[in-house]
């Protein structure tokens, strides 16, 4: 009897864990994280809105490319003005590259002129692993129905050169434009590029 209870427990635990793994065209798993000002956010509070998740590490050369060129801030500003929620998430563990104090995060975000909705701190990596975030940047888009509709790179030029931003096809803006005009996202997955997430 004890063995049966144990097996049932394992079965439910496995199902719960699998259910929490993000996958395309499925409900995006909910999470709760605090931002760099100490305010708690959950994905569920943005029901009915399009949400962008951007994995971030300010010291990664690939992230620098998109912030130093202002590409990321322009995307954040353009789409948050259209009602999109933009959450930057940092999964760098304590002591690893990209992990900063809240003051340092807020200072850097201000210097960059970041226009995201919030910078969320995931230092134990739970949310990063739940979404399968591998690189910085790694981009995810959740539509107003709460489904994950895009996972992958920000664009199609795998480099750290700021000059490439102008030449690249931006997958995130293309997907967001399609969502905002009521269309299906045409490219749902691409291969992300960048530094490893420092779990």
């Amino acid at each position: 009897m004890k063995n049966l209870i144990f097996l049932i427990g394992i079965f439910f635990l496995t199902n719960v864990l699998l259910a929490q793994q993000a996958s395309i065209d499925s409900k995006a798993p909910d999470f709760k994280l605090k931002d760099s000002y100490g305010k708690e956010y959950s994905l569920n509070e943005f029901k009915g809105k399009t949400v962008v998740l951007e994995w971030i590490n300010y010291d990664c050369p690939f992230v620098k490319k998109h912030y130093d060129s202002k590409n990321m801030q322009q995307l954040q500003e353009k789409y948050t003005q259209k009602g999109v929620v933009w959450l930057a998430i940092c999964s760098s563990a304590k002591g690893k590259q990209g992990h900063f104090t809240n003051d340092e995060i807020n200072k850097r975000s201000k210097e960059h002129g970041a226009k995201f909705t919030a910078y969320l701190i995931d230092e134990d990596g739970t949310v990063g692993k739940m979404y399968g975030a591998k690189t910085t940047p790694h981009m995810f888009i959740i539509n107003s129905d709460g489904k994950l509709v895009y996972a992958g790179a920000i664009d199609d030029i795998k480099s750290t050169d700021k000059e490439d931003v102008k030449k690249a096809n931006n997958y995130v803006s293309k997907a967001l434009d399609e969502i905002l005009s009521g269309k299906e996202v045409s490219t749902k997955t691409t291969t992300p590029y960048g530094c490893s997430v420092k779990y």
Binding site: D59, C60, P61, K96, Q97, S159, T160, D161, C195, K198
Partner: peptide, 14 residues
């Protein structure tokens, strides 16, 4: 040569 050299951090070079 366009590459990235990494340890616990990564440094691009071109």
């Amino acid at each position: 040569i366009n590459s990235l050299i990494c340890k616990d951090i990564c440094i691009p070079f071109d």
